[in-house]
Simulated assay, not measured.
Amino acid sequence: MRKQGHRSRAVVAVLTAALVGVAGCDAVGGDAAGPTPKAKPSPKPAPAWDSSPASIAAVGDSITRGFDACGVLTDCPDVSWATGSSTQVDSLAVRLLGRTKAAGRSWNHAVSGARMADLSPQMAQAAAHGPELVTVMVGANDACRDSTAAMTPVSDFRAGFEDALGVLRKRAPKAQVYVASVPNLKRLWSQGRANPLGKQVWKLGLCPSMLADADAVDPAATERRDTVQKRVEAYNLVLKQVCAKDERCRYDGGAVYDYRFGTDQLSHWDWFHPSVNGQARLAEIAYRRISSVS
């Protein structure tokens, strides 16, 4: 009986220990003895958009240079929508920085006639200033060629824009970027063709892919202009898509393309480039997009 009692006490002890162990696991919620799982790091929040940058550099083409806004076949950067000092325009720089600061804290590196392939060197120049904002308006000259066959391929346009943003990011990684859409060239043709003087200037070789034979509306001319228009739309899609991959980039959402430029907004020298009034409208569009918090 002593041996049996000894065995009974041993069995009870083992069972008690097992029950205590089970109760202990349940009391602390299960696998208490295991290592504490490491918390996953929180994703880095996207940087907030600064709606009031303290310096601006502009890159692009003749539109940003104010071409034909003040005189025939000449740049007029004073009325540039991006960095001009004209009181008739109230450029983006003036609206954001104030007239006094804009004079010393804005730089215009756009070049009349520039295409997307020319943007990277301009970006390098702009980045050298360490700007808080860079404005981009380019693409019209990629579509405005001697023929539709000579227009910049969409793939090359994309590669050029990606390269230009890469140049900026290496030299000014925190700079914000505002990207304007390519204007609606077909609308500019439809508005300007009503002016005899404008059509004479167009014959000098201004955007022949769209403006050549301005009065022709036969199937071949219509197809040519439609081809140019589709290419402009493809360029704008590229600008939107590439910009969306950069957390410090804002596309205008097609606002410039959608703007219904009329004869008051067109140069009275060539009836194609923006007039002083047109430059002011571009400044308004850019300011609304940049100053918005979202």
Results as ranks from 00 to 15, higher is better:
197 L>C: 11
88 Q>Y: 10
76 C>M: 08
132 E>R: 13
246 D>V: 02
129 H>Y: 10
263 T>V: 13
285 I>R: 01
99 R>H: 11
62 S>V: 03
87 T>I: 06
221 A>E: 12
216 A>E: 10
124 A>D: 09
164 A>Q: 09
24 G>A: 15
213 D>P: 12
274 P>H: 08
70 C>A: 13
291 S>H: 13
94 V>T: 13
85 S>R: 01
85 S>V: 12
254 G>S: 04
75 D>I: 04
19 L>T: 07
160 G>I: 09
224 R>S: 09
94 V>W: 11
45 P>L: 03
17 A>H: 02
232 V>S: 06
227 T>K: 13
35 P>T: 10
156 D>Y: 03
206 L>R: 10
238 V>K: 02
273 H>D: 07
119 L>R: 12
248 R>Q: 10
273 H>A: 12
288 R>W: 02
123 M>H: 06
4 Q>T: 11
112 S>D: 00
42 S>A: 14
84 G>D: 10
290 I>H: 06
115 R>K: 12
32 A>Q: 01
172 A>Q: 11
248 R>G: 08
71 G>E: 08
31 D>G: 06
8 S>W: 15
104 G>M: 13
186 K>Q: 12
20 V>M: 15
264 D>K: 08
26 D>H: 15
55 S>K: 10
290 I>A: 07
219 P>D: 15
33 A>E: 10
198 G>N: 10
52 S>C: 06
256 V>I: 12
240 K>N: 14
176 Q>D: 05
210 M>T: 13
67 F>R: 03
261 F>A: 06
27 A>L: 14
264 D>Y: 02
286 A>G: 02
270 D>H: 11
96 L>Y: 13
35 P>W: 14
23 A>E: 03
145 R>S: 12
16 T>E: 11
134 V>T: 12
52 S>Y: 03
78 D>H: 07
212 A>P: 08
62 S>F: 00
37 P>H: 04
163 D>G: 12
126 A>S: 08
293 V>R: 04
62 S>D: 00
204 L>Y: 07
280 A>R: 13
271 W>M: 12
175 A>I: 11
252 D>G: 02
45 P>R: 04
168 L>T: 06
292 S>V: 05
71 G>A: 11
121 P>N: 00
82 A>W: 07
281 R>A: 07
224 R>G: 15
273 H>S: 07
194 A>Q: 09
53 P>T: 09
161 F>T: 04
205 G>L: 12
187 R>M: 13
274 P>V: 03
56 I>A: 03
86 S>R: 08
98 G>L: 01
170 K>M: 04
46 A>P: 04
149 A>I: 07
266 L>Y: 06
9 R>M: 14
226 D>W: 00
40 K>F: 07
281 R>V: 15
121 P>L: 01
284 E>C: 00
252 D>E: 01
129 H>M: 14
134 V>F: 05
108 N>A: 08
73 L>R: 14
208 P>E: 08
121 P>I: 01
21 G>R: 07
279 Q>H: 06
103 A>H: 08
56 I>D: 00
190 S>W: 00
238 V>E: 02
274 P>E: 01
172 A>G: 09
94 V>E: 06
148 T>K: 00
123 M>A: 03
144 C>I: 07
9 R>A: 15
252 D>Y: 04
165 L>Q: 07
42 S>M: 14
132 E>C: 04
84 G>T: 13
225 R>I: 05
65 R>G: 04
82 A>E: 01
242 V>Y: 03
136 V>F: 01
125 Q>K: 15
